[in-house]
Design a protein around this nucleic acid. Sequence first.
DNA 1: TATAATCACACAAACGTTTGCACTATTTTT
DNA 2: AAAAATAGTGCAAACGTTTGTGTGATTATA
Lengths: 346, 346
Amino acid sequence: MEKRLPTIKEIAKQLNISVSTVSRALHDHPNIGLRTKMRVQQLAKELDYEPNQTAIFFQQGKTYTIGVILPELSEAFFSSAISGIEDAAHKGNYTVLLGQSHDDIEKEKHLLDTFRKHRVDGLLVSISKNTTNYEHFEALQRYNIPVVFFDRIPKIPNIHYVACNMINGTVQAINFLFKKGHRIIGMINGPEKLPATKERLDGYIQAMTKSRLKYDPNLVVNCDLTKEGVASSTEKLLSGKRKPTAIVAFNDYVALDAVQQVRKMKFKINKDISFVSFANLPISNYTAYPPLASVEQFPYQQGQKATETLIELLQKKSEESLENNNATFYKIILESQLVVHDVKQG
Amino acid sequence: MEKRLPTIKEIAKQLNISVSTVSRALHDHPNIGLRTKMRVQQLAKELDYEPNQTAIFFQQGKTYTIGVILPELSEAFFSSAISGIEDAAHKGNYTVLLGQSHDDIEKEKHLLDTFRKHRVDGLLVSISKNTTNYEHFEALQRYNIPVVFFDRIPKIPNIHYVACNMINGTVQAINFLFKKGHRIIGMINGPEKLPATKERLDGYIQAMTKSRLKYDPNLVVNCDLTKEGVASSTEKLLSGKRKPTAIVAFNDYVALDAVQQVRKMKFKINKDISFVSFANLPISNYTAYPPLASVEQFPYQQGQKATETLIELLQKKSEESLENNNATFYKIILESQLVVHDVKQG
DNA sequence: TATAATCACACAAACGTTTGCACTATTTTT
DNA sequence: AAAAATAGTGCAAACGTTTGTGTGATTATA
């Protein structure tokens, strides 16, 4: 029952011509006469011939495959991102090889190895939280496999990346609150060492000082993003000397957890205290007290853009070939944007 | 700067032995003397030799790659599923090639083609909503590429699949409500033609009759899952002759939309009327009025199980080879399970 | 001591495709 | 009519690996 798939050889034998002629005929090579071209192409169709890609990959040393490594697929951000990646890759005739690191640097390394062995043409990576050492990525340079990082970017020079600038969005968030009349604005930020945390803080400081509100470090608390951490951070903010009337939360989940704590303390949401947060998860539509607005980070677009960039790199690579290794690095920044929710006040 | 990666030939030349010896030495073949084995393995390490997988794939006609086609990655269900798939594949030393159909049958076909050309060893598929014709899958049989379907299963005989039995969960849901004292229980079901809808209905009828409550068709309404559809279905249920005190919703989103409508009609949630639903999205933890309980469908486990099944099939295939094509088909059913939420009453 | 078994390795084919080169007709140019 | 260009094919190498078979040397058996 084993169907032997038809090959170029088969066609050659049946038509009594050489394999090279068949190959060229199928590729519309100008050297081949119209007559034979037709005969070959017709027989190919009859036999349902399909080129063996693995043979072609091998022969050309290319796989038209992109490896994607990201921390956690079940996070909404990354599942959107992979969606954008997959769509863009498909459009560019590339295929996506997927792997998740689960924020474990060892798994990240292992995936990198696997993908390299699979001879992916290029890589798309959002690094794991626990990755602080980047040797495994630097090693890739030697293999001439281009990497485009997105969202979670390693702090090393000479890399390509696509990221979303949070500063702008944070500024918009503060300004939004300012216009609503808030003057004491707090922030529940993330773990201190995260770059995302720093960006939010920068935006906060920038916007506060521009609005002639002075920057009060007591109004900004870091937390570990657990429910308990958020609760205690919230409590700390609300029991401080200057009680904020609005809080910018690290993300939507933090906002929702904070809301719970606020209600436990018998404050009225959107009256005593309002929330703005990051991420804009679909969840917000369904909660009783969603944040007034969210800073959208466009994960789909980030994924898409990163993929397009990588494909561009791959094309340049095959064109230049041996030329001077063009040492220009793509640093693409998408702007985050505040999305105001349609919340019924009260 | 172009690094030529070291090959088996290189090693052979440097040690002045044949490539076959090198190959066997690297594979610990018993025919090779210990001395040469050591020399080869050491030089391999020195040169950082890594076998060229594309060559091996080509040579062996295997790719250790699994193609995955699913409708929409950004849906929570599928992103969990792919997570399970990826983990299981990785454990079995397979790699995952990813594609989403966006519920478009043409894209589904195209992905199938791409994956076939890439010579994936096997396929994991959750079919698109709009797929009613299954020829493209049947065609795969000829290429001897095994397919395991999951969650969304085509209605054709002789296929492998992994699915989740909703009937049991539905029965549990009704019993749960019965124990809470509810006697008039409504259901907001999905589109009529969906198999998922039928299963829920079956479970509903089964549980109602077993509980000596008679099955009243007026208590079950179908809806199109849009916000508006849910609203009107809810209204219809609540303004009927027999007003239900509890409602089983098609999924968590439907439940939340229904809750909104119920509140608009000035009924008290969990007092006048309670909800139970399907899916158990993380969202439930954050909403003001989550359903009392959800029927969990274990997407991660479904993905995992489907992958393990496929890998098993692939191993059998390579063992049996030309043997009788073992015509047993895996039909794996996971049981859904009611998860009771920790909701503060009132 | 002659024969058989074992060991350690080399040779070469095969997987399917692409592509530089050589070759033979035919046609075009001088 | 001879030389040159061109069109249409075939040959063979190459990509890196695995694996069946062949072969000489060493060791074990009778």
